[in-house]
Design a protein around this nucleic acid. Structure first.
Lengths: 348, 348
DNA sequence: GGCGGGCATGTTAGCGCTAACCAGCTAGGC
DNA sequence: GCCTAGCTGGTTAGCGCTAACATGCCCGCC
């Protein structure tokens, strides 16, 4: 005679397990498992009894035990740089939203330093938790390289940017965005367009520079040397002060909205009017962009779509990894130009 | 004679497990476990041999199996609203940083809707992954209420705001921040201070309103009715337009920096100069605040500290939960006033 | 010299679940 | 009437690890 027999209903401080449900429903734990996993070989009456028992005990399957036996955890890791920059933060939430819908959980590993070692370390750290796959939000060349170094170990997809080959990449078409912005300014009659670029090691920055320079060359204009910032309003301000001093500058395409904000501030301080004297176009369309002085013309990226597409690609990669088939293709998401008041027809 | 005997070194496509290491080192899997967990009862020679075997096989312990037997996963869940607002996003990364240092992993669950049901649902969703504890980044009254509803199930700490009792809260002292801002404007000689507040259901907004109103009353000034925004630059702009029309307004304390940006824009459009005609003080000190036109005086919150403190409190709560002892106390983090160019002495 | 007591190690039993196989029952065909 | 097929359900093994107990050894002590 054991304690269970004496007090069958009092079972304090312990989560019910499958066999508890089975006992209450008068079936084996395996039948409970069948009900949970939707096996067809359970009679409707039994199924009902099991479901009732589950409800009564408030039973929830232990995902750890399930993961141990199936080898799948239904969690995916996201490696992101430790930043509140609009793009990465939005992408992260876009991923979470998509993951939720697909029944996955997100474990995050953020990076302190932007070097390839810490990316590799972060992926290893995630791997150890048993994630089924990893999304790496790639910021710079080093991260892109790192993605290739850890590949093969675990299904992986690069987000926002990535290496040319070796791993699927889901990103907004940065070149296209830069072309949109630059052509817009040329179409407004500006003789040339200056550029404040993101950091040299950023792949996104590089693609934007390419799109800008190619568009100018296509219009038979020799691009000036781009100014290199670090995405912050601070460098936008500092570099902007330099542009403000150059009377020939009438149009600037800025690598992101934060730097554009700094530029606007610098132009204001120098007494150059926007858009009358100088037109400015940013990149990202952060929520504050419509409220800059003046409201900013910029290139919008759909980060929600980046998140959901990258998750979908990763799930495909997980399947193909398990089956040993080819990794899926990445995706390029088209950007959109949002015209506001910071860009206008060139004065003569 | 089995396949293992024929090809002892070729073991394709399978992660090595503890007994593989043991076999290679000539000990039992339990001894390997002892080495990994730092038991003292292992001779130095054996330990060395085991470590060498681990290295050779590139062995990594399976955290799922460990979690199954220990009941601890070393992951904690973070519930956050689906937002790129500076505060929550910064807090999230602050938490991740602290968790990394403490050897924990972060699983995130973001909310689509701001109601108490979805908070409860998110916590349940996290619980099911086997998190050891949950941090809830609380935005509004409903979330604070929800925290109390799920309590007891799992160790939990509210971050940024929370209910008065029933669960530890780690937050910046919002009242204190509002007092700092309001007193700063009064000290500059403004007869009164108007206020653009956050949404009515936000606890933080409410505390800021209280701090503002109390400071005015302490100076024998009757507070005007606060204008209610939704934290976005958009409402700041709309409400700001209203204030701009009122010639008597000389000082505005705004509930966050984004709304302050909208207000600055509205004042600019109305031809009211900042700070000559109107002084503006924000809240948060987002990275862009120094580059607003003009650079924004604001209240800075140390979100990194919020993250690390809340993690520390949660870890304490997890321990005390396991031992059945009292839950730990929360923490209030002091804010700091950052004076820039959007506030100045009142004109006469 | 026998014996108790540490210490290093091995053995066993589970954690809660799924997968694989097995058993018993009903129904249908010859 | 018997045999087989097809269903529902049970039994068993094992995922990889830790905890608890068991064992055998060396050492020092009376």
């Amino acid at each position: 005679m054991d304690a269970d027999e004496l007090e069958p209903t009092v079972r304090p401080r312990r989560q019910p397990v499958m066999s508890d449900v089975g006992r209450l429903a008068g079936v084996s734990h395996q039948t409970v498992s069948r009900v949970i996993n939707g096996s067809r070989h359970v009679s409707p009456t039994t199924r009902e009894r099991v479901l009732a028992a589950m409800r009564e005990l408030d039973y929830r399957p232990n995902p750890i035990a399930r993961a141990l036996v199936t080898g799948r955890t239904r969690t995916i890791g996201v490696v992101s740089f430790d930043t509140t920059l609009y793009g990465p933060a939005s992408t992260l939430f876009g991923i979470e939203r998509a993951a939720h819908e697909a029944g996955y959980f997100i474990v995050i590993a953020s990076l302190r330093a932007l070097d390839s070692d810490s990316v590799v370390e972060a992926v290893q750290r995630l791997r150890v938790t048993g994630v089924d796959g990893v999304l790496v939000i790639v910021f710079d060349r080093a991260a892109a390289q790192a993605v290739l170094e850890v590949q093969a170990d675990v299904p992986m997809v690069a987000v926002e940017a990535g290496p040319e080959h070796g791993v699927p990449v889901v990103a907004v078409d940065q070149r296209r965005g830069a072309i949109l912005a630059t052509r817009h300014l040329l179409d407004l009659g500006h003789a040339t367009v200056h550029h404040i670029a993101g950091p040299a090691d950023s792949l996104e920055a590089e693609l934007r520079v390419q799109g800008w320079a190619d568009t100018l060359r296509a219009a038979a204009v020799r691009p000036s040397e781009p100014l290199i910032g670090d995405w912050s309003a601070g460098t936008g301000h500092r570099l902007g002060a330099r542009l403000a001093r150059d009377g020939s500058v009438t149009a600037v395409f800025v690598g992101n909205d934060q730097m554009a904000l700094g530029l606007l501030r610098a132009l204001h301080e120098a007494g150059r009017r926007v858009p009358e004297d100088i037109s400015v176009v940013g990149f990202d369309d952060i929520p504050e962009a419509p409220f800059f002085t003046p409201p900013l013309t910029t290139v919008s990226q759909d980060f929600g779509q980046v998140g959901s597409r990258s998750l979908r690609v990763l799930v495909e990669a997980i399947e193909s990894f398990a089956q040993g088939t080819q990794a899926p293709a990445g995706a390029l998401i088209p950007p959109e130009l949002i015209v506001r008041s910071s860009s206008a027809r060139a004065a003569h």
